[in-house]
Design a protein around this nucleic acid. Sequence first.
DNA 1: TATAGTGCACTAGTGTTATAGTTCACAGGT
DNA 2: ACCTGTGAACTATAACACTAGTGCACTATA
Lengths: 130, 130
Amino acid sequence: MAIDLNSSVPVYQQIADHVRRAIAAGVYRPGEMIPSLRALALELKVNPNTVQRAFEALEREGLVYARKGLGMFVTTHGSKSAQSTSQTAVYETFARGIRAGMEANMPDRQIRQTFRRAFEDVEAEARVKS
Amino acid sequence: MAIDLNSSVPVYQQIADHVRRAIAAGVYRPGEMIPSLRALALELKVNPNTVQRAFEALEREGLVYARKGLGMFVTTHGSKSAQSTSQTAVYETFARGIRAGMEANMPDRQIRQTFRRAFEDVEAEARVKS
DNA sequence: TATAGTGCACTAGTGTTATAGTTCACAGGT
DNA sequence: ACCTGTGAACTATAACACTAGTGCACTATA
């Protein structure tokens, strides 16, 4: 997991997004513990308070719950919830891009073609990683 | 033009994006003047400084230039530049959404289907407006 | 010359973000 | 009993982003 300190999106939100997707992807399953505040803070080289802020967001969403002295655990419906919110986020991102393209007077075909090109590129990236 | 004060994206950036797309769409053509600071500020009910900040961004991009005491004018290559950056922005937005979906373990088909659904929805919105 | 409209510069207040430090209560293992 | 590791809470600070308010210099026109 990589954190971009120069990004405009806050660090705590990057962490929350990443953990949420990991839960959606099944990396952490219901009942399982996610990495501790201090462990994750050490790994990402950020302040524990920043990680805690990300956990607060996930707890508010009902994806995880805290057991004092033990750690944070994925709720029973956490996996499905994470999948749902992740999918909604993807949908909203696409919709924003489409609106921007239409407002700039891009023809429909060009918008679709731009998506196909982006898909191929991202897929190529993914291939390299694995 | 509508400004969302509750959005996480800054007002000045919303304005810059909107004007950039308007230039790309040919609403304002090279050599023509774009709405003045105060006129736009009045219309959007924001502070003139906020509009100016948006104009600064557009000027840095080389889309417009200022003539003191007169106004901001679209440069000769402003239209093409605006089209180019707008298209790049759309591409980047799509790529971000695709990466998020893949990280969340969404199957390729589902990502593509989500895009199609978003496209239909946005197209329906546009139909209602016109 | 006077007036109105233009962009520009400076200051100030507010909120957000991230870090740092400290303390506390709880659970588990030795 | 003790120690370690866990989340939670609080304060303080520094830096930055954002918006608003105000005044100034410039241009064109009546």
